[in-house]
Design a protein around this nucleic acid. Structure first.
Length: 963
RNA sequence: GGGGAUUUAGCUCAGCUGGCUAGAGCGUACGAUUCACAUUCGUAAGGUCACAGGUUCAAGCCCUGUAAUCCCCACCA
C-alpha cells in the first residue's frame, strides 16, 4: 500500500473495521470462573483502579495472582463498559454518536493500556417507543391492537423489530465502536428475562412487590399507565370555576350520613348510596353554601368530601356538617385537611380521590371512598343517567350548563396551571384509579443512598452524586406495570377458581408463555401487563456482563457507566438500586454523564426546528474519526453544549495532517534509511502471536532504538512525553476534550511545525519512526481508523495498532531540549519582525547577523530553514541593520537603513509594551509583603524577568537612537 | 417552594491545587507558495473573566451578595 496525497476515510474505514472484527480483537481475554467453596473469591480481588494504569507497576510485571490456587486467572486487568442500548428499531442520532465517541475512546485507551477491555453492545426493545411506532403502523394498515391477543401482538412486533434491526448495528460499526458483537445483549433476550424474573421473585418473596389500587397517570390514547418520571408537565391556561355546594342541616342528614369506608385494596368504585332529594336553603345566598373552586367540574360526581383547612376560622362551624353534591342527591361531609390552602380560592376544596393525586392522599388520610366517574376510554360512568356515557369534555359542558341553570355556578376565572401530558403524543393524561404492580422502594433507596454517601461511586460531573441522593430521598413507590404488549410479561397469575379460598389471589410463575396455568389443582390466569422497561434496564450491568451468583466475574462491577445526564433518575438510579439488591455490590465504580448535543446556536435539536444533525451523514462526508474528534471537542461532563460541522472539519483536517505527516516520514525513511537499521526497531513480537497474548507481553525497559543528535530531537521527545502524561491524566479524569486538544497541538504545532521542519535538515530515521509510532498510538483511541490505516501502510509497524502497546516515555537530554526553546524564541522573533517590516516577502530578502552568539552560530542551518532567511553571517565590525528584540542575543537583521527607519514606530511601540510589562513586575517587587510571603522561586522568577526586560529595553532604546 | 448548573475573545469552549503577561478551535486581517499537507505555512488583531463587596502578598479560580440564562423535582383545587 502506498500513501495517497490526502486521507480518504471512505477508502479505508469499512475494510479496517472488518479486519478488526475478523481477528476478534475486540473480545475480552479474561474468562469468568467459579467461585471457590469458601465462597469468598470476590474478596480476594485487590482494590485496583485500572483508570490509573500509569502508576508504574500497575500494568507491568507480576501478573496479579488473584488466587494462588487458580493460576492463570487474573482478577484484574479487566476493563468493562456497557453501551446504553440504542433502540433496536431506530437509527442512531447525534447523542449516540457522542456516546460511542466517549465510550469507545475509553475502551480503546484501556485496551492499549493492556487491560482486557470489554465494550458490551446492546439493543433496546424500547417498550413504549417501539410500541407507539408499531401501533401507528397497525393503524395505517387499518387495524387496531384490539383485534389481536397480547401474544399475537408480541409476536408481530418481534418480527417488525427483527426486520429493522441490524441497521443500528451497522451504524455503530461505522462509528468505530470496538464492541464485542458476539456479546450483544437484546433487552428481550432469554437471559435478561430470566434475570428480571429472578429479581422480581426475590422481591415478591421479600414482600417488596405489592398490587395496589392507586392513581396512575394514564394516557387515554395509548391506553397505558406511566411512571411518574415519564410524565411531562406543561403550564397551560385553564379555567377555575366557583361552584356552590349547599349546606344541609346536620339534624336532617343524621340518618343518611355517608358512611366513610376503609379503602379496600380492590374496591374501586365504592359508591355511596344515593340520597333522596330534600329541601335546601336558597342556593343564591352564599351563606347557605360552601363555595369550592375547581378546574374539573365534570369530576364533581366523584366528590366524596369538601375539605377546609383546620386553622381556617371561616369554616369552623361547618366542619362535620354535610353539603349536597350539586346535580345529585348525594350528601358529602365537610372535613378538615392540611391540603386545603386558606389562601387559595375560597379556601374550600372538593375532594375527588379517584381523579386527583392530592385528593387521593386526602382520601387515604380520612378513609374516604373512591368514586371513579371517568373510565379508561374517557367516558363518564357511575354518574346520573343523563351524564352517563358522555365523554369527559361533553360532560364538563353539560355540568357547567346545568350548574348555571341552577344558579350554582358563581364565577370563573382564567388561571395558569401545570397539566400532565403524555411525553409521546402530548395527550392530557388522566389520573386513573388502577390496580398495578408496585415496588416498595424504601429499602432499595435507603441502601442505595448509604452506598452513595460512602462515595462508592464516583460521578462526573461530581455534583450529580448529590443530586441523585436528593432524588432518592423523596422517591415514591415505583409503578412497574405497563399496559402494552411489547415488553417482558409480568410473571404473575391471578386465581380464577373461586372455590379455592385458601389459596392466595396471586402467584408468581415463570410460565408467562401461557395465558392460563394450573398449580395444585387451582387455575390461574396471567396478568396481561408488561414490565416498565426501566425495571429490566435496571439489570443492564448485571445481564451484560453475565453476572451470576456462582461465578466470579472480573467485569462486574463495571468500571464506568457512561450515559446521558437526562436519564440519571430513570436509569442510573435504578441500576444502582437493583444492582445492589441483586449482587450486593454497586453495579459500576464511576459514572460519566454527558449532556445534550445542541445545534451550533445552542438550541436543542428537534425535527420541528429542522436543526437535527445526522451523525451518519457527517461520517459519510468527513469520516468517522473526524466526527469523533469533532464531537469530543469543547465538551465536558454533564453540560449541554453546542456542536457544529466546523469542529468536524477541524477533526478531518487533523486526520489529514496526521496522514501527511506519516507520508512524509515514510518518504524520508524510504529514501534515507537502509533496511538494516530499520529492523532494529521491531520489538521482538513474533508475527503470529495473537493480539490477545501480546497484551500481556512483559513490558521491559528496552533501550531506545534511537539516539538523539540535536536539540530539536531532544525537545520533541520531551514534548511527546508531556503529551502522553497529559493524555493519561485526562483519560483518568474523563477529560476527553483536553486529551484531544493536547494531541492536536502536539501533533500539529510541535511535531509537524517544528520537529519535522527541522528534520528536513537532519534526518534521524529511528527517531522519526519511534516518535511517529508513539503519536499514532496515543491518537488511536480518538481516531481509530486513520491511525490504523497509517499503521497498516507503514512498513516498520506490525499487527494492529488497535492492540498495540501504549508507548513508554522517550529518552532525551533535558538540557538540550531546553536549549531548543531558546532557538524557537529566536526564530519566532525573526519571523515576527520580518512580517512587521514594510514590504512583502521580507524573509527572502534579508540575512541575519549575529555577534558572539553560539546558539545562532551552532544552529545556522536550522535557523535558516525555519526562518527562510537567505543567509546567516557573523557580524564583522560595527552593528548594522535592525537589532532584534531579544534580551540575550546580539542579533541583527541585515536591513538597509531606509527600511530600518520605517520600522521606527513599531520599535517605539515595542519599547512601550515591554515597559508596561516591566512596570507591572516592578510594582510586584515593591510590595514588601510579596517579597516576604510569596514562595521564593516566584520572587526569583520576578527578579529575573525584571532584569531581562530592563536589558531588553536598554538595547531597544539604543537601537532607536541609532535610527 | 426545593435542588442543580451556567455567565471568560465575534462564535463554541478550556483554564484542574489561587502564582496569568488569561488559552484553543472556528471566524477575521495581513503575508507566503514547485521541495508531506491550500484539508497548507507564517504573522497579527481581538478580553472590564456578568456585576458589587470581601479574604489574600497574589483572585478568572476562594467567600458573601446581586443580576441574567438554563435544567430537574414538587405544587398549583
Amino acid at each position: 500500500m502506498t500513501f495517497a496525497k490526502s486521507y480518504e476515510p471512505g477508502a479505508y474505514e469499512s475494510d479496517i473495521y472488518a479486519a478488526w472484527e475478523a481477528d476478534g480483537i475486540f473480545e475480552p481475554t479474561i474468562p469468568t470462573y467459579p467461585i471457590d467453596n469458601d465462597g469468598n473469591g470476590k474478596d480476594d480481588r485487590e482494590e485496583e483502579r485500572p483508570e490509573d494504569p500509569s502508576s508504574s507497576d500497575t500494568l507491568k510485571g507480576a501478573r496479579p495472582s488473584l488466587r494462588s490456587s487458580k493460576e492463570g486467572l487474573p482478577g484484574r486487568h479487566a476493563y468493562s463498559i456497557v453501551m446504553p442500548p440504542p433502540n433496536a428499531n431506530g437509527n442512531l442520532h447525534i447523542g449516540h454518536g457522542l456516546t460511542v465517541a466517549l465510550e469507545d475512546s475509553l475502551t480503546r485507551y484501556y485496551r492499549l493500556r493492556g487491560l482486557s477491555s470489554w465494550y458490551i453492545p446492546g439493543a433496546d426493545h424500547a417498550g413504549f417507543e417501539t410500541w407507539v411506532v408499531y401501533e401507528r403502523f397497525l393503524e395505517k394498515q387499518g387495524h387496531t391492537r384490539f383485534e389481536f391477543s397480547r401474544d399475537e401482538l408480541y409476536a408481530r412486533v418481534w418480527d417488525f423489530v427483527a426486520e429493522q434491526r441490524g441497521n443500528m448495528e451497522l451504524q455503530l460499526r461505522a462509528l468505530g465502536a470496538s464492541c464485542d458483537w458476539d456479546d450483544l445483549t437484546f433487552t428481550l433476550d432469554e437471559n435478561v428475562v430470566d434475570r428480571v424474573y429472578t429479581t422480581f421473585e426475590k422481591m415478591w418473596n421479600d414482600g417488596m412487590i405489592y398490587r395496589g389500587e392507586k392513581l396512575v397517570n394514564f394516557c387515554p390514547k395509548h391506553q397505558t399507565a406511566f411512571a411518574d418520571i415519564e410524565v411531562e408537565h406543561k403550564d397551560e391556561k385553564g379555567t377555575l370555576w366557583d361552584i356552590a355546594y349547599e349546606i344541609v342541616d346536620e339534624s336532617e342528614s343524621e340518618d343518611s350520613r355517608l358512611a366513610p369506608s376503609r379503602p379496600s385494596l380492590r374496591g374501586s368504585v365504592a359508591q355511596s348510596a344515593p340520597l333522596r332529594s330534600r329541601t335546601v336553603s336558597n342556593p343564591l345566598i352564599p351563606d347557605s353554601s360552601i363555595i369550592v373552586s375547581t378546574t374539573r367540574p365534570e369530576t364533581l360526581f366523584g366528590d366524596v368530601a369538601v375539605a377546609v383547612n383546620p386553622e381556617d376560622e371561616r369554616y369552623k362551624d361547618l366542619v362535620g356538617k354535610f353539603v349536597k353534591l350539586p346535580l345529585t342527591d348525594k350528601l358529602i361531609p365537610v372535613i378538615t385537611d392540611e391540603h386545603a390552602d386558606p389562601e387559595y380560592g375560597t379556601g374550600a376544596v372538593k375532594i375527588t380521590p379517584a381523579h386527583d393525586f392530592d385528593d387521593f392522599e386526602v382520601g387515604e388520610r380520612h378513609s374516604l371512598p373512591r368514586v371513579q366517574v371517568i373510565s379508561e376510554d374517557g367516558k363518564m360512568i357511575n354518574v346520573p343517567e343523563e351524564y352517563e356515557g358522555l365523554t369527559a369534555t361533553e360532560c364538563r359542558k353539560k355540568v357547567l350548563k346545568d350548574l348555571k341553570e341552577q344558579g350554582l355556578l358563581l364565577g370563573e376565572k382564567r388561571i395558569e396551571h401545570s397539566v400532565a401530558h403524555c411525553y409521546k403524543c402530548g395527550t392530557v393524561l388522566e389520573p386513573m384509579l388502577k390496580e398495578q404492580w408496585f415496588v416498595d422502594v424504601e429499602k432499595l433507596a435507603t441502601t442505595a443512598m448509604s452506598h452513595l454517601e460512602k462515595g462508592e461511586i464516583k460521578f462526573y460531573p461530581e455534583n450529580k452524586g448529590k443530586v441523585l441522593i436528593n432524588y432518592l430521598r423523596g422517591l415514591r413507590d415505583w409503578n412497574i406495570s405497563r399496559q402494552i404488549p411489547w415488553g417482558i410479561a409480568i410473571p404473575m397469575f391471578r386465581k380464577i377458581d373461586e372455590a379455592a379460598t385458601d389459596e392466595p389471589d396471586w402467584i408468581f410463575d415463570r410460565r408467562t408463555n401461557l395465558t392460563e396455568i394450573e398449580k395444585g389443582g387451582v387455575r390461574y390466569v396471567r396478568d396481561d401487563d408488561t414490565f416498565d422497561t426501566w425495571f429490566s434496564s435496571a439489570h443492564w450491568p448485571i445481564v451484560c456482563t453475565n453476572w451470576t451468583e456462582e461465578n466470579f466475574n472480573p467485569y462486574y462491577p463495571l468500571n464506568v457507566m457512561e450515559t446521558g445526564a437526562d436519564i440519571l433518575f430513570a436509569w442510573v438510579a435504578r441500576m444502582i438500586m437493583v444492582g445492589l439488591y441483586v449482587t450486593g455490590e454497586v453495579p459500576f465504580k464511576e459514572v460519566y454523564l454527558h449532556g445534550l448535543v445542541l445545534d451550533e446556536h445552542g438550541q436543542k435539536m428537534s425535527k420541528s426546528k429542522g436543526n437535527v444533525i445526522n451523525p451518519m451523514d457527517l461520517v459519510a462526508r468527513y469520516g468517522s474519526d473526524a466526527f469523533r474528534l469533532g464531537i469530543l471537542r469543547g465538551r465536558s461532563a454533564g453540560m449541554n453544549q453546542a456542536f457544529s460541522e466546523n469542529s468536524v472539519i477541524a477533526g478531518r483536517n487533523l486526520c489529514n495532517k496526521l496522514w501527511n505527516i506519516s507520508r512524509f516520514v515514510q518518504a524520508i525513511v524510504e529514501s534515507e534509511g537502509d533496511s538494516e537499521v530499520s529492523s532494529s526497531v521491531s520489538r521482538g513480537e513474533s508475527d503470529d502471536s495473537p493480539a490477545a497474548l501480546r497484551l500481556y507481553s512483559s513490558e521491559t525497559s528496552e533501550s531506545p532504538s534511537y539516539s538523539t543528535n540535536n536539540m530539536g530531537e531532544d525537545w520533541i521527545c520531551r514534548e511527546i512525553n508531556e503529551c502522553l502524561e497529559a493524555v493519561e491524566k485526562d483519560m483518568t479524569e474523563y477529560r476527553f476534550a483536553e486529551a484531544v486538544e493536547i494531541l492536536y497541538s502536539t501533533i500539529w504545532d510541535k511535531y509537524a511545525d517544528w520537529f519535522l521542519e527541522s528534520q528536513k535538515l537532519f534526518k534521524n530515521i529511528e527517531l522519526l519512526k519511534e516518535t511517529l509510532k508513539t503519536l499514532l498510538i496515543a491518537m488511536h483511541p480518538f481516531a481509530p481508523f486513520v491511525t490504523e490505516a497509517i499503521w497498516q501502510n507503514l512498513p516498520w509497524t506490525e499487527g494492529f495498532i488497535a492492540t498495540a502497546k501504549w508507548p513508554a516515555r522517550l529518552d532525551y537530554d533535558p538540557i538540550s531540549a531546553e536549549e531548543f526553546e531558546k532557538l524557537m524564541v529566536v526564530v519566532s522573533e525573526v519571523r515576527g519582525t520580518l512580517q512587521a517590516l514594510p514590504g512583502t516577502n521580507n524573509a527572502k530578502k534579508y540575512g541575519l547577523l549575529y555577534d558572539n552568539d553560539s546558539l545562532v552560530q551552532d544552529n545556522e542551518f536550522l535557523i535558516k530553514i525555519l526562518t527562510k532567511v537567505p543567509e546567516i553571517n557573523s557580524l564583522n565590525g560595527a552593528p548594522r541593520g535592525l537589532r532584534l528584540a531579544l534580551a540575550n542575543h546580539e542579533l541583527y537583521l541585515d536591513i538597509p537603513e531606509k527600511v530600518v527607519s520605517e520600522y521606527k514606530d513599531a520599535l517605539t511601540e515595542r519599547i512601550m509594551a515591554v515597559g508596561r510589562e516591566l512596570d507591572a513586575l516592578n510594582m510586584r517587587m515593591m510590595n514588601p509583603n510579596y517579597v516576604e510571603k510569596a514562595p521564593e522561586h516566584l520572587v526569583k522568577e520576578t527578579q529575573d524577568a525584571i532584569a531581562e526586560k530592563e536589558a531588553l529595553i536598554a538595547r531597544l532604546k539604543q537601537q532607536l537612537e541609532i535610527i
